[in-house]
Simulated assay, not measured.
Amino acid sequence: MSKAFIASVIQDSLECTGVAANRCATDLIEAIVREMKKEGGFTLPSFGTFTVRKTKARKALNPRTGEAVKVKAGKTVRFKASPNLKKAV
């Protein structure tokens, strides 16, 4: 799924211009990102839950050279599908 797909669905649903639908899709995505930064997660009922998790610093191997590389601590986003989504798919 892409932002263009979301904008297309909004445009068809609301019968609005492509510019307005694209702006709406952009605002929707930005609102979801803000909520995840603020609360650490986001839930769409009947779809699933996105959660932000912290990752620890670790050592990894470069697959080409086999050389050890340090990977910094960071954050990642996880998704857990709702039971309704699992049944639908």
Rank of each mutant, 00 (worst) to 15 (best):
E15G: 06
R34A: 05
L44F: 05
K38Q: 13
T49G: 01
V52M: 10
E30M: 06
K38L: 09
R53E: 15
N22Y: 12
E15Y: 04
T26Q: 15
T49H: 04
V19F: 06
A25W: 01
K56N: 10
R58W: 07
A25S: 05
A31S: 12
E39Y: 10
A60W: 08
G41F: 03
M36P: 00
R58K: 10
L28V: 15
F50Q: 06
K54C: 03
R58H: 08
T43H: 09
L61A: 08
E30V: 12
T51L: 00
A57D: 03
I10G: 00
T17C: 02
G40A: 02
E15Q: 14
K56S: 11
E15W: 08
C24K: 10
L14D: 07
C24F: 08
T55N: 02
K38S: 11
V33N: 12
G41E: 15
A20L: 04
T51I: 09
A60K: 07
T49A: 13
V52R: 02
T49C: 03
N62Q: 09
L61H: 12
D12C: 05
I32K: 01
N62D: 09
C24V: 11
R58P: 01
R58T: 11
T43P: 00
K59V: 08
E15T: 12
V52S: 03
F50N: 01
G41L: 08
T26Y: 08
S13N: 13
E15A: 09
K54V: 04
A57K: 15
T26I: 11
E39M: 06
K38Y: 11
N22D: 14
T49S: 13
C24T: 11
R34I: 01
S13M: 04
C24Y: 13
K56L: 11
P45Q: 13
T17R: 08
Q11Y: 05
T49M: 06
E35D: 13
R23T: 13
C16M: 14
A57R: 10
I10V: 03
K56W: 07
L44R: 05
A60E: 05
E30D: 15
V19K: 14
T43S: 11
L61Y: 06
T51K: 04
F50W: 04
G18I: 04
Q11D: 05
E30A: 08
T26V: 10
V19H: 12
I29S: 02
R23W: 11
P45Y: 11
G48V: 09
A31G: 08
A20I: 03
K59P: 02
Q11I: 12
I29V: 15
C24H: 08
E35R: 05
N22S: 15
F50R: 03
L61R: 14
I29N: 01
A60V: 10
R34Y: 04
N62E: 07
R58G: 02
E15M: 14
I10H: 01
F50V: 04
L44E: 00
L14Q: 12
